[in-house]
């Protein structure tokens, strides 16, 4: 009986997610160009080529750097913002609203906003004498910065909601003991939101490996591949280089990374018995 209620979800998921995923796995063992009517099975060749392909390796490295950036910068901003908001009396809702606004702005529009601000001739770039999107040393961080602008406010909102679930008595007791806000943050707040923190850490890693929009819109992976991520390499191989089979192998590797992260999370959660 229950599965009757599940049926619509199962059907729509079958066509949009499961079949395309299975097809991608099948393609990844072929040399299909993406447009040809013929393809040959090449076994594991695409996978063995991957790790010798400097573009793939570079993309993977950039994804790791991207993940590190998103585990540190927005997490720190989100935790700070939420902790500060949880301790103020006035304007809390106003600040929360303002911080959240960039999250609802479409990525195509966000990119346009920041392209103008970062412009080396007329924008902030001209004031600082830098070219954030044109300098190979800055470009990846600049794109991550723009992506983060739209992201950190979401973390504030989530962390704030989690912090408000902490028993106020704990803080009162800590204050009696004369604990500084700094101490309170590390000994009460952080442990109190641990499940949320762990979950967002997980999602940050997963989303960092899926990042695509901002790079695609702002730099297309350039200059000189300095902003290439796995997703943009995948996209270019599929559509510019006509190597759909090979690009599917990249997709499968990305999917395996996500699956691995999810599995580790689920196992850890079960072992630690987190109640979320």
């Amino acid at each position: 009986m229950g599965w009757v209620f599940m049926l619509p979800l199962v059907i729509v998921n079958l066509f949009v997610v499961l079949i395309p995923s299975v097809l991608s796995i099948v393609y990844s063992f072929t040399d299909w160009s993406g447009i040809s009517t013929r393809a040959r099975f090449v076994g594991l060749q695409n996978y063995t080529t991957l790790f010798r392909d400097p573009e793939f390796v570079q993309g993977l490295l950039h994804n790791i750097l991207w993940t590190v950036f998103f585990l540190i910068v927005p997490m720190a901003m989100g935790l700070f913002g939420a902790f500060a908001l949880s301790r103020i009396r006035r304007f809390r809702l106003l600040f929360r609203t303002l911080y959240f606004i960039p999250y609802i702005v479409a990525s195509v529009v966000n990119a346009s906003i920041w392209r103008s601000i970062l412009d080396p001739d007329s924008g902030v770039g001209s004031l600082l004498h830098i070219n954030p999107l044109g300098d190979t040393h800055l470009a990846l961080w600049s794109v991550a910065f723009v992506n983060n602008w739209a992201w950190w406010g979401f973390l504030v909102v989530v962390f704030l909601a989690a912090m408000q679930g902490i028993d106020p008595a704990l803080y009162e007791a800590a204050q009696m003991d004369g604990a500084s806000p700094f101490r309170q943050f590390f000994s009460i707040t952080l442990p109190g939101i641990r499940p949320t923190f762990a979950f967002l850490g997980l999602m940050t890693i997963i989303w960092s490996f899926l990042a695509f929009d901002y790079v695609y819109i702002l730099t297309q992976g350039g200059p000189a591949g300095s902003t290439d991520l796995l997703s943009t390499v995948l996209y270019r191989d599929a559509f510019s280089n006509l190597q759909a089979g090979y690009s599917s192998a990249i997709g499968v590797v990305m999917a395996l990374i996500s699956t691995l992260v999810v599995t580790v999370y689920l196992v850890v959660r079960r072992v630690r018995k987190w109640e979320i």
Binding site: L23, I25, T30, T37, R38, A39, R40, F41
Partner: peptide
């Protein structure tokens, strides 16, 4: 073995 795209689609 050589396969056509339709057969590819049939896979899975």
């Amino acid at each position: 073995p050589s396969i056509t795209r339709r057969q590819l689609l049939a896979g899975g």
